[in-house]
């Protein structure tokens, strides 16, 4: 176990990941992670907009996990968030369990966003903001669109079937 921990850390490093959190995600944690990442990135060469986009993507993902993860322990929602740097771009990875019956809708929404250009995303965001959230949303229903707008290429996503009830939903957002 102890030896493996080093291997695990090295493995993250090889993938360009400089921050990773797996477990219960809470609002307090979100604020701390955000602030720490901001400081870490500001020490590097990242510009203001980049730092804020990474920060924003981490917050949206964390709040998605808090609201929608289908793996819970009492009041906490479980998920994983990682932040890395590769090919001169920051990226954010995010994953959590979802009920299999939610996959269709998620896939549909995310595929739609993948096929939009920057301008279409901007217009879609403004239209959706006017319309208000869909019934299944407990936020404003804008999180994915916001991330897609801030990303430098289309959001990648995947569903890995775990059993007949749950799948692991993961996303990669390149800033």
């Amino acid at each position: 176990m102890l030896k493996d921990l080093y291997e695990f850390k090295e493995d993250l490093g090889k993938r360009g990941i400089f921050f990773c959190l797996s477990g219960p995600i809470s609002q307090n944690l979100v604020a701390e992670i955000g602030t720490t990442l901001e400081q870490h990135m500001t020490m590097g060469e990242a510009g203001k907009s980049t730092v804020l986009r990474v920060f924003s993507t981490v917050v949206e993902n964390a709040q998605n996990i808090m609201r929608y993860s289908d793996e819970r322990e009492e009041d906490f929602s479980l998920g994983i968030i990682a932040v890395g740097y590769e090919n001169k771009h920051y990226f954010v990875l995010c994953g959590n369990m979802v009920d299999n019956n939610k996959i269709g809708k998620l896939r549909e929404n995310l595929t739609k966003l993948q096929n939009m250009n920057k301008d279409e995303l901007k217009k879609y965001y403004r239209r959706k903001r006017r319309e208000g959230p869909p019934p299944e949303s407990s936020g404003a229903g804008l999180g994915f669109i916001d991330m897609a707008k801030k990303a430098s290429k289309p959001i990648e996503f995947n569903f890995k079937t775990i059993d007949d009830k749950l799948s692991f939903f993961s996303m990669k957002i390149v800033i």
Binding site: L52, F55, S56, V59, E60, Q63, R129, R130, G132, P133, G139, A140, L142, G143, I145, D146
Partner: peptide, 13 residues
């Protein structure tokens, strides 16, 4: 506002 999340964006509108 230095930063706001997407649901705040709706409220600010």
């Amino acid at each position: 506002l230095i930063y706001f999340n997407s649901s705040s964006s709706k409220v600010l509108m």
